[in-house]
Design a protein around this nucleic acid. Sequence first.
DNA 1: TAACAGTGTTTAATAATTTCAACAAGAGCC
DNA 2: GGCTCTTGTTGAAATTATTAAACACTGTTA
Lengths: 192, 192
Amino acid sequence: MLNDVKSERSAGPDLGTRLRSVREERGLSQRELARRAGVTNATISLIEKNRSSPSVSSLKKVLDGIPMTLAEFFALELPPEDQIFFRAAELPEFSEEGVSFRQLGGDKSRQKLQILRERYAPGADTGETMLSHDSEEGGIVLSGRIEVTVGDQQRVLGPGDGYYFDSRTPHRFRNVGDEICEIISACTPPYL
Amino acid sequence: MLNDVKSERSAGPDLGTRLRSVREERGLSQRELARRAGVTNATISLIEKNRSSPSVSSLKKVLDGIPMTLAEFFALELPPEDQIFFRAAELPEFSEEGVSFRQLGGDKSRQKLQILRERYAPGADTGETMLSHDSEEGGIVLSGRIEVTVGDQQRVLGPGDGYYFDSRTPHRFRNVGDEICEIISACTPPYL
DNA sequence: TAACAGTGTTTAATAATTTCAACAAGAGCC
DNA sequence: GGCTCTTGTTGAAATTATTAAACACTGTTA
């Protein structure tokens, strides 16, 4: 469910990118680190993609394989705090069941604006229970077709189309086409 | 199972005592902190007693209620590094199903010797699958009666009695009496 | 081309954590 | 005494993380 992504976001500092960055700096593959840490490579993959929030003890095990302490890990400032430019590969990703979000800027707790590159696989859906949060949001469709439901209004949008609404109104996104749909969206304040 | 305690120990810095210390410094009850953090009081209780290793996201939620960042939390040095004297209440506790360990000195990763005050409730048992690790250990019974199995030898010990063996030999402790049994034990190197 | 070894990802089953609700112990107060 | 409010703890159920095994992809070598 999308709720998971939501709660993982509130995990704060982007743990996935942080771990990936540390690992790649050491020139370790997921499998090699997993072997040293005594966990499976799947665990590392899921953590790095922010699809699971590891327990402190397993994160400790993983860091032991680096090696690095928890304090060092969390003290790390990955983006130099006030980074301005971001390469595509640097955007932290939150993905789940055909829905993928890449976020502009690592730490949304210090930003007033959250900008996402959203990617919906065919059939992907933000879920039957409508989303609702205290923000305003808008976006523009890059490719594909997506059904957007806001309150009692519903519309299928294609490339070039856009939307803008008060996020307190229950809403839902659903890729009704048979190709991938990409959207650039913005939200203020950030949807924690 | 006792294995859990084992893996929680390797969680490293004693997370439970650390959290309890931070919470009490702020004058918060478990319930009050739970309310602010949006978790239940049971969660806090279990974490503080090292009976569960929280996910990073839930630990983050808890710390948000303090408030305090993960980096600050892990950077904290609870015992001033080379503490010599410990009050009874300061001993970090690891407990589970009638078995409780209180450890002398917080961080066993820097110590060569692990000294525990063990407490077995009537019927408590370290489990059917025998324990085995690369250490030597010994202990003296303070009160109650405990059945100690080491390899093919087995004995019931009472107050004043002691034991010493190579921990690689499969072993097991079981309180066969109807009163609490307390033991002071030592192990080198620490049973991670 | 095929075969292989390396990478990261995903899925279903297993094992852990978290919640909900109840409990017991202590303090204050009438 | 009893009553009430608060504390921390615990057991069964719900939720989440972890594993084991498979998949898809890339580059290398015969």
